[in-house]
Each structure stands twice: as C-alpha cells, then as structure tokens.
Design a binder for these strands. Structure first.
Lengths: 148, 148
DNA sequence: TTGGATAGTCAAGTTGCTTGACCATATGGT
DNA sequence: ACCATATGGTCAAGCAACTTGACTATCCAA
C-alpha cells in the first residue's frame, strides 16, 4: 500500500471519527443535556461501572489529575456526578454518577446507535458488523486522548 | 444492533482514531519536524494542491478566519508556509507551502503508512483494503473538526 | 459612484489544559 | 511506635488555542 493511500485511509478514518463525535454530541444536546462536552462522555465510561477516583480518571483520560479534578468539578456542578468519601482510603474520594449522569450516557448510546444505523444504510449491516469486529483489534489500549 | 453495541463500536473507532493521530504526530516529530501540531496536518491537506486563502482554510478546518489566520502566522513563523499576494484579488493573500512544508507532509504520509502496516499485521491486508473501501463511504463531507 | 459584501488583521476575552506548591493520609522500613 | 517517603487531592497561576468584536482595504453590482 502506497504512502498516499495510507494517508487517504487515515483521513477517512479521522473524518468518520470527527463526524461521529459531532453526531453523538448533537444527539445528546438534542435530548436535553446541555453544557456537556464530548470528553465528559469518555469520563462517564470510566465512572459508570463502580465509580472512580480523580486519579483513575486522569489516567484514563490522559490528562493531569488537576485537569481531571476540574472536570469532576464541572460534572458535579451540572448534576452529572457526585463526590463520595472513599470506603477504604480516607485520602481519596470516590466519584460516582448521578441518575442524571446515567440518563445522559443512555442518550449518548441512543445517538451513537442512530449514527451507526445510518452507516448500515450505506454499507449494509454485514459490513458494519465487520467494522465492529475489526476496529477493536487495532485499537490501542492506552488513554483516550484526542491529542489534536 | 443494540445501543450498547453501537457505543462499543463508536468507542473502538475513536480509540483507533486517537491512536492514529498520536502515531502520525510522533512519527512526524521523530523525523525532525518540531513544533507542528496535528491540526497543521489538516491545514496542509488543503494547502497542498494550489495553496489557499485564509478564509478557505477556516472553512476547511471549521474554525473562525481569525483562528485560521493565527494558525498561518504560526506556520509561516516555523517555515512551513508563505503568504503571497493573491493573483486576482488584491484583498486576499494566497497561502502556499514551502519545500519544508511539503517535506513535512511526506513525513506524515510515511508515519501513516507505518501505522497502517501494523494494522495489516493484525488484520491482514485484505481486511485493511476493505476498511479503506468502507470508511470513505461513511465519511461526512463537512469541515475536519476535532470537536472534542 | 456608491453601498454593501468579502478578505484579512488587531485586540481582548474565554476556556481547558498545564506546572508548581501545598496539605492530608497511607505505607513500609527500622 | 516512628518517621521518611509515596500517594490522593486541591488551590493558584500561567499558557495556548480558540472565540467575539471592531476595524481597514478591496471588490462588485445597482
């Protein structure tokens, strides 16, 4: 594969990713969740199972713990998360999602499903399933970092 | 396809995109082009054919023309682009890439090819070709907007 | 020729991150 | 038991990449 073809593939991938983020964000806003930024969604995926500490979040998002702390401030102020005392470590605080936060993630899932449905109309469901099989195999494991 | 599956597919796509941007950026830096940000690459793709005006760039990148102008300032200061008088419109200025700028895009293409080659090792070349066929069909046409 | 649209820049404000400094609590070696 | 060091978290200040607002120069159509 030529370098220029690799670049074209990369550009297409980034265009799809950028469009998808925009679609999900618009869908979440349209469902009544204002003031939430796409990066909050990445935070939600880490908080959802059992909550997380600020430091956990910082590692997951690939930012400093100060930045993660500010992000949590924002989520708390907007009613999406709460800080609780940590059950076993008095230094730490466990950040957990509120019901409103969980509702917001459901809205994001619905919006994502809408976008994927449109892909199915173009590619067919079989190919979308193939996408869903291929992408996780080449996804890096590290922090979710926009980085551009 | 369930909503949660759509979300998992989305997450995988965004992880791949984030990793790819990081890979390309690292590769460009490793080839000796410092102080260049990923967004500059998107600007290069618009400048490469015949140059572009600041307003063209702003539309392409999805930012204000002031932001585009600042970005061009930066590219000029770092030797990747030059401002020339526009051949037919005395208000406008044509921004064109320097040889160093073109060398930088070649470095980005090499880095992209490296990343894609690693995908081939995991998925096989046939599936990567299939990716290259599918993604452009679902890529939105609008501005290249990171948006998160 | 003149009034409004367009290309571009300058200046100031906002925001989301960073680095640096600091306190509280945990942990492990002696 | 005690202290040195590591770790979790926050406060404060700074920075970089955008934004909005205001302005000049040029184009173009009535």
């Amino acid at each position: 594969m030529q370098n220029s073809e690799a670049m074209a593939l990369s550009a297409a991938l980034l265009a799809v990713a950028g469009g998808l983020v925009q679609r999900i964000h618009d869908g979440v806003v349209a469902r009544g969740f204002e003031g939430v930024r796409p990066m909050h969604g990445f935070a939600f995926t880490r908080l959802a199972p059992d909550g997380a500490t600020v430091t956990d979040l910082a590692v997951h998002l690939g930012v400093t713990k100060q930045a993660a702390s500010q992000l949590v401030d924002d989520l708390v102020r907007k009613g999406y998360a709460e800080r609780h005392p940590h059950p076993v470590d008095a230094r730490a605080r466990l950040v957990v999602m509120t019901e409103r936060g969980r509702a917001c993630t459901r809205a994001a899932e619905e919006a994502a499903a809408e976008a994927v449905r449109e892909w199915s109309e173009v590619l067919g469901e079989a190919e979308v399933r193939e996408l869903a099989r291929m992408l996780p195999r080449i996804a890096p494991g590290g922090p979710i970092r926009p980085a551009w």
